[in-house]
Nucleic acid binder design. Structure first.
Lengths: 234, 234
DNA sequence: CGTTATGTTGACCTCCTTCAAAGGCTGTGG
DNA sequence: CCACAGCCTTTGAAGGAGGTCAACATAACG
């Protein structure tokens, strides 16, 4: 059991060269040869829903790339509450602050069973100095984190609940599109949209009554994308 | 007049080696010799309140470091509205996305007369490859942007208005502390806190009636920091 | 089959929005 | 110096949206 990865199952050394998401995660751009030389300390983990990858304030020694599944980053503030500040899916990276020797800024919790790569921060920093391709990928990841945070502020924290929920569902995507068709429970929806669990539940129930969206054991299925898009713009 | 900087007054080539904020902005860590060799294309601008540094979607060719004053980054979404996603003060950097050849993600508007350095993205990218010190500064700036966005989500978009406003005022700081003692107008407060201008005005008026804060031509003066801190934690 | 966690719904009340109007400050022109 | 316009702020009143507390339903699970 990894100290940073509660309840995570260790699968083995990562085989980055055969990883189907290689091109969309951190090491995109490196050739197989380059990968073979460096991938030894990288662990491949499977973490079930509920697993905590790391906790806010913990000393960060690794970054995590998400190969599949979904991970949430939550920020606890003084007065309780605690809000979800990011949802990560395939190709996203968690814990970049570890590269700067900063403590983890969030608590990372698995929402849907996830395949992850755990990469020592030290390794990434070494490669960063010698591999211009990785270097650019790093900057892109950081920018993506900024974009996601900004998008959350602009799209999920402004307007009426129905509009916010519609935007969230559209962001989560559809089952047959990408790996992002996961459904959230009402509590997480509330923490993401900045409302109570009850309000999130009421809005979702109404959406289902209207036939705009359907739920299938953890997945969400769209029935009327147009209706959601119309709501999102209101 | 610079194309990217409406109403900005051009002062001259930047003299980074005598810049008092050099240690807290992008080139912190470089020696004077190193600076002398590279600072030629850097422009020093003075921009009055209301000036627009760049607009969302514009092709980004420069990053801006803020030497003094205050700048807001606003994100316009489809359905109008438009929300402030970041407040920048002395030492902060705007437009990092230009380094990745991405269009500007926000509109940058000066809120309080600002001294700025306009640095060509190309120059930063060149230095990034040869100057490890600058490289680390860059990553730190990106992380700071993430932190600020997350902080906004957690602190300024959750809870009752009074708590949010108290947190905002504490963040803005006090006049005799740093350069962040600026007061915002009610419209910007609303755009930052996610409420209407009227609600922001009502809350501020009440704070002033209670004697917790005072306003002096654009600056804010604390009278009762404890009261604000207590509100912030509620 | 009971137990527990999660989702749904209702009733009531608070907070914020909306629309409207009045007050205050500043700059401009007579 | 005063009058006036324009902008920002403040305040009021009415309505709606979401919070809160509680009950109940449903699903998951041993």
């Amino acid at each position: 059991m990894k100290p940073n990865c509660t309840n995570a199952e260790w699968i083995g050394r990562a085989k980055c060269s055969v990883c189907e998401v290689r091109n969309i995660v951190l090491f995109a751009g490196l050739t197989n040869d380059e990968l073979d030389r460096i991938l030894h300390p990288i662990d491949n983990l499977h973490a079930p829903a509920g697993a905590v990858l790391y906790e806010q304030g913990g000393s960060g020694s690794s970054v995590f790339t998400v190969r599949s599944g979904m991970v949430k980053l939550t920020l606890d503030i003084a007065d309780g509450g605690g809000r979800i500040v990011r949802l990560l899916g395939a190709g996203d990276v968690a814990g970049l602050e570890a590269l700067l020797a900063q403590p983890y800024k969030h608590t990372a919790t698995v929402l849907h069973d996830a395949d992850l790569c755990r990469i020592p921060a030290e390794l990434v920093n070494q490669l960063d100095q010698t591999q211009p391709k990785l270097h650019r990928q790093l900057l892109l990841r950081w920018q993506k984190a900024v974009d996601q945070a900004d998008s959350l502020i602009a799209c999920l924290a402004s307007g009426k609940i129905e509009a916010r929920l519609a935007r969230l569902l559209l962001k989560l995507g559809c089952r047959d599109e990408s790996s992002r068709g996961y459904m959230l429970n009402r509590e997480d929806m509330g923490a993401l949209l900045g409302v109570t669990t009850e309000t999130a539940s009421r809005a979702m129930a109404e959406f289902k009554r209207q036939g705009w969206v359907r739920e299938e054991k953890g997945y969400c299925v769209f029935c009327n994308r147009q209706a959601l898009a119309a709501l999102a713009h209101a």
